[in-house]
Amino acid sequence: MGKIYDRLTDRLREFISAQPVYFVATAPDQGGHVNVSPKGYPDTFTVIDDTTVAYLDLDGSGVETIAHIRDNGRVTVMFCAFDGPPNIVRLYGTGRVVTPADPDFAVLIPRFGPHSGVRSIIVVSCDRISDSCGFSVPFMSYEKERTLLDEWAGRKDVQQKRAYRARHNRESIDGLAALAPEETDPVRHHS
């Protein structure tokens, strides 16, 4: 059934890279709402080394993951097989928010595809890597990527993105600090 790994093996890396969707879960320390976010676009996730992964954080309606990671660092990333052999891979660890002002941003951004609404990069240092059977996960057919998020962000100019982030991305639904005012400026370059 399930197995725990001390590193991301070639088999796990291959499985992760083949999944069209992954899920990110976080929770604040002092009560509040647990958050699970689905993520798409295959070029938004990368394995950095045997125990470190990262994903591109794009504009969205909320900013729970950033707020929760800044609150306590805890994050879990989950991949499920919706076709082929059943499998679930979970990456548990400590996250770090890398904003465009961070020197690591310029080093990390080339690892991802071009997207219009980049807010940050979330880097996860994995302290537990596991897989399990996924016997009850249904078969589902992948058709294609939804392009709506990139299209929406691509229609916004710098001022519109700044205003949107100031309205929707400064704090979590529970009032935790997320993006600071100086962090709401849109990224001016793509990977």
Rank of each mutant, 00 (worst) to 15 (best):
E143A: 15
L91S: 10
C126D: 02
H168T: 05
I121P: 02
R119H: 10
D102K: 03
W152Y: 13
S120V: 05
Y142D: 10
P138T: 09
F135G: 13
R96L: 00
V107I: 09
F112C: 00
K144V: 04
T94L: 03
T94N: 05
N169E: 15
K156Q: 14
V107G: 01
K156I: 06
L179E: 10
D150H: 04
S132P: 00
C133H: 12
E171T: 13
V158E: 14
D174T: 04
C133N: 14
V123S: 08
L149R: 15
I122H: 10
L179F: 14
R90N: 07
P103G: 08
N169P: 02
F135W: 12
F135C: 11
H115Y: 10
N87D: 02
L179V: 08
T99P: 00
L176G: 07
G134Y: 04
K156F: 12
D174G: 08
D104K: 06
G154H: 06
A178F: 08
I129Y: 06
K161D: 02
D127Q: 06
S125W: 03
V158G: 09
L179S: 13
V98S: 09
V98I: 14
T99R: 04
S120R: 01
G117P: 07
G95T: 05
P100C: 03
G154P: 03
G117L: 04
P103A: 14
V89L: 03
D102I: 05
I121N: 11
A163M: 12
Q159M: 07
K161G: 10
I88Q: 10
D127M: 01
L91Y: 06
R111S: 10
C126K: 03
D157V: 02
H115I: 05
D174E: 05
V107M: 03
S130P: 01
G154I: 02
T94K: 13
R165F: 02
A177F: 01
L91G: 11
S116H: 15
L91F: 07
I173Q: 14
A106Q: 03
C133T: 14
H115R: 14
H115M: 13
E145H: 08
I121D: 03
H168R: 13
L149Y: 10
A101L: 03
A106R: 11
V124A: 12
V98Y: 08
F112M: 01
R90F: 00
E143L: 12
D131R: 01
L108M: 05
M140P: 00
A177W: 04
G93Q: 00
K156L: 15
K156H: 12
H115F: 12
P103K: 11
K156W: 14
P110K: 00
